[in-house]
């Protein structure tokens, strides 16, 4: 019998994927080796290529293959506005609104004191340098409305306001087309606290 150490290596490597425990990792490894060797090869190559060519955009911190991502190098975007989001998926959602034409900064995380994630871990120092380019007039903070996202927004606000930058936070409340009857009480309570005059 051949030593299974290569197989064991593969199984333990697969466990780095989120939500994959020892059982699922084993299932994946057997599946790839038994039924889909071509798929496994594609996966291996794609992984190697991605690791080699994908890096962080020098201006917005998101994943890119070039020095600057497409969005940051576009001349059509308004360089006076910078929207701060937690993750590339959030940036994608913002883009889909077609309501924003400024630039972005992707934190790749949020402050989470209980997980040991502080300002250095999410690159607030990099954000600060990015904002001091002389072009950014307003920073729009679009982090999540979780406690962690709110804490992140607060400290970005404090940091940038002290340097004379206008900082705003996206609004929260009842969803568009939402009926009060079906909104959860937490959202409704906060919408009441953050009411505006009409």
């Amino acid at each position: 019998m051949k030593s299974p150490s290569t197989l064991e290596d593969l199984i333990s490597a697969l466990r780095c994927l989120p939500g994959v425990g020892p059982k699922s990792a084993q299932r994946m490894a057997y599946h790839l080796l038994q039924y889909d060797r071509a798929g496994a090869e594609r996966l291996g190559l794609a992984m190697g290529r991605a690791l080699q060519s994908i890096r962080r955009c020098a201006r917005c911190n998101t994943f890119t293959e070039a020095e600057l991502c497409q969005l940051c190098s576009s001349a059509k975007r308004d360089a006076s506005q910078l929207c701060v989001v937690e993750a590339p998926a959030d940036q994608l959602m913002m883009e889909q609104t077609l309501a924003y034409s400024g630039l972005y900064f992707v934190l790749m995380g949020r402050l989470s004191p209980l997980d040991g994630i502080g300002p250095r871990e999410i690159g607030l120092d990099v954000l600060q340098r990015r904002v001091s380019d002389g072009l950014v007039k307003e920073v729009i903070v679009a982090t999540n409305f979780t406690n962690e996202g709110e804490a992140t927004a607060h400290y970005i606000g404090e940091m940038l306001k002290a340097r004379g930058i206008r900082v705003s936070r996206i609004a929260r409340g009842i969803p568009v087309g939402g009926e009060l009857e079906y909104v959860d009480s937490g959202t409704l309570a906060q919408a009441l606290i953050e009411r505006r005059s009409v």
Partner: peptide
Amino acid sequence: EWHGGHPLLQGEALLCGFYLNELLL
């Protein structure tokens, strides 16, 4: 179920809240 009764923590109070939770944990 959400009970309600007090507003969400804001700003520095959030950090204080995280500190209380870490102490309990």
